[in-house]
């Protein structure tokens, strides 16, 4: 499902000027094209790396 970044901007951040919106949307569109295949191959059980393993073996979670 492709996102309409301009539409999202109109809802979330209507103060972004129209002339800047083109550039913002273009960057996010390009990034989405890189990210979408990665997102789709994610196994269901994969946890986010929000809790970052700080040690080599990853045993010490902070």
């Amino acid at each position: 499902m492709r996102r309409d970044w301009k539409q999202i901007a109109r809802g979330i951040a209507p103060e972004i000027p129209q002339n800047e919106l083109e550039g913002v949307a273009a960057v996010l569109q390009a990034l989405e094209e890189q990210f979408a295949p990665l997102r789709e191959r994610l196994p269901y059980e994969t946890e986010p790396a929000l809790i970052f393993p700080c040690d080599a073996a990853g045993e010490e979670l902070v």
Binding site: R3, W5, I8, A9, I12, A13, I16, E20, V24, V27, L28, F35, L38, R39, L42, P43, T46, E47, P48, A49, L50
Partner: peptide
Amino acid sequence: DQGRLIPATDYINAQRVRRL
């Protein structure tokens, strides 16, 4: 501005890909 528009689901999934 770009960062404000990224959905929470993308952020969380990016952190999941990071783990992988």
